[in-house]
Amino acid sequence: MTFESLAALWLKTRKNKVSWTQYKNLRCYINHLNRYISNMDVAEIKPMDIDALLDALTDENPNTHRPASRQTLVNVRSTASRVFEYGIDIELIVRNPARGREISRYAPRHYRRALTIVEQKLIIATPHRARMGVLVMMLAGLRRGELIPLTWDDIDLDALKISITKSAESKGSNRLFVKEGTKTSWGRVVDIPLDLALELQKAKAVSMSKYVCPRVDGQMHTLMSWRRMWDSYITALCKVPGAEKTNIQEITAHYLRHTYATLLYISGVDVLTASKLLGHANIKTTMSIYTHLDDMLKAKSVDKLDSYLSSSLFTSSGQVRP
């Protein structure tokens, strides 16, 4: 059996077990694999073949004509490994040639940044119909797909908790469909800060919709209505005095979630608790974020040392001040 045939069989087993978006991503990763090993007999594929395709993608992603990011390479390798494990399960092959293959250390890493303090203050201070939803994403870590179907019944203001038990996803159309559970689990409960609860209480008192962040007519968003609202919101933020000194126009919904992760880190929340609050399927995801933030903090500490040495000990020529 060729790799392409085995991958197609495996993909069928995933169709009703993952979200439509995850399924679409899996098809994308398999397309990458099929470019290199589609016609090869799965029993003849060797670790060196997997290394070769990963190296080729490291040099250039055919879709973007730029080097593939480290995360893309990890996802392609993981998908290949899962296909081969399926081949082992159905007794077609006896080994997994993708298991443990190394990703180049030179593959570019793409990190979403957290919002600066200035940007966070702009979001808190700028009135807009998107503001409440943005605050929930920034201060409770909800994904866009978790926020869109969120109703006031999901929020317990007395207990300071939000129950995240459903999510909205597109299936290739403008309409969003609500499913039980979230991207990575059957749901989670998030403790919210008092300041967010007070904002929610004020918004609930004047809301005419059952949704926390609805479209103009009070109904749940479609893809198009969300995009129109988001574009309007970013435009409003850019007009606020002080916004010209920021990169607020590049903000996406996931920047807000990354800001929440950063706030958890800065507040000293341990990685296990943070992983549960963020709803990560694997604690390694949270660990990678915390490690990145830790590296950034160390770099800023060294910058402070540089500033001190330059201003206090050394002259501009590098000589020690008397």
Rank of each mutant, 00 (worst) to 15 (best):
Ile148Asn: 08
Met224Gln: 15
Lys179Trp: 03
Glu169Met: 00
Ser225Phe: 10
Ser225His: 08
Val206Thr: 13
His221Lys: 01
Pro214Ala: 15
Leu176Ala: 00
Lys204Asp: 10
Asp195Val: 12
Ala197Ser: 12
Ile234Lys: 11
Ser167Tyr: 01
Lys166Tyr: 06
Ile192Thr: 00
Asn174Cys: 08
Val216Pro: 00
Leu194Tyr: 15
Pro149Cys: 08
Ile148Ser: 08
Tyr233Val: 07
Arg188Tyr: 07
Val178Gly: 00
Trp226Asn: 01
Pro193His: 09
Leu200His: 08
Asp154Gly: 04
Ile148Arg: 05
Leu198Gln: 15
Leu176Cys: 02
Ser173Ile: 05
Lys202Tyr: 05
Gly187Glu: 04
Lys202Asn: 10
Gly172Leu: 13
Lys166Asn: 09
Val212Met: 07
Thr222Pro: 02
Asp191Lys: 11
Ala205Ser: 11
Ser170Met: 07
Thr182Phe: 00
Ile234Gln: 10
Glu169Trp: 00
Arg175Asp: 13
Leu198Cys: 12
Val178Trp: 04
Asp231Gly: 07
Met208Ser: 11
Asp217Glu: 06
Gly181Thr: 12
Gly172Arg: 07
Met229Val: 10
Ser232Gly: 15
Met229Trp: 08
Gly187Trp: 02
Asp158Val: 13
Leu200Ile: 11
Asp231His: 12
Thr182Pro: 01
Ala236Arg: 11
Met224His: 14
Thr235Gly: 15
Val178Ser: 01
Lys171Gln: 14
Gly187Phe: 04
Gly181Cys: 08
Pro214Gln: 13
Leu223Asn: 15
Asp231Cys: 10
Thr235Pro: 08
Pro193Tyr: 13
Tyr233Gly: 09
Ile234Asn: 11
Val189Leu: 09
Ala203Gly: 08
Lys210Arg: 11
Lys204Phe: 07
Pro241Cys: 05
Trp226Arg: 02
Leu198Lys: 14
Asp195Arg: 12
Thr165Gln: 14
Ala236Trp: 02
Ser232His: 08
Gln219Val: 05
Leu176Gln: 02
Ser167Val: 05
Asp217Tyr: 02
Gly181Lys: 09
Thr151Pro: 04
Arg188Met: 10
Gln201Gly: 07
Ile192Gln: 05
Met208Glu: 12
Ile164Asn: 05
Asp195Glu: 15
Lys239Gly: 11
Asp154Trp: 05
Leu160His: 15
Thr165Phe: 14
Met220Val: 01
Thr184Arg: 00
Met220Asn: 03
Arg215Met: 14
Leu223Trp: 13
Leu150Met: 05
Ser167Asn: 07
Ala159Phe: 10
Gln201Asp: 14
Gly218Thr: 02
Ile148Val: 12
Lys166Cys: 11
Arg175Phe: 10
Val212Tyr: 04
Cys238Pro: 04
Thr151Lys: 11
Ile155Asp: 00
Leu223Cys: 14
Gln219Asn: 09
Arg228Thr: 11
Asp154Met: 06
Lys166Gln: 14
Ile192Val: 01
Ser170Pro: 02
Trp152Val: 00
Asp191Pro: 03
Met229Ala: 10
Gly181Arg: 08
Ile162Leu: 03
Trp226Ile: 03
Ser232Lys: 06
Ser232Asp: 14
Asp156Gln: 03
Phe177Arg: 10
Thr182Leu: 02
Leu196Pro: 06
Gly172Met: 12
Pro193Asp: 07
Arg227Lys: 13
Met220Arg: 03
Asp156His: 04
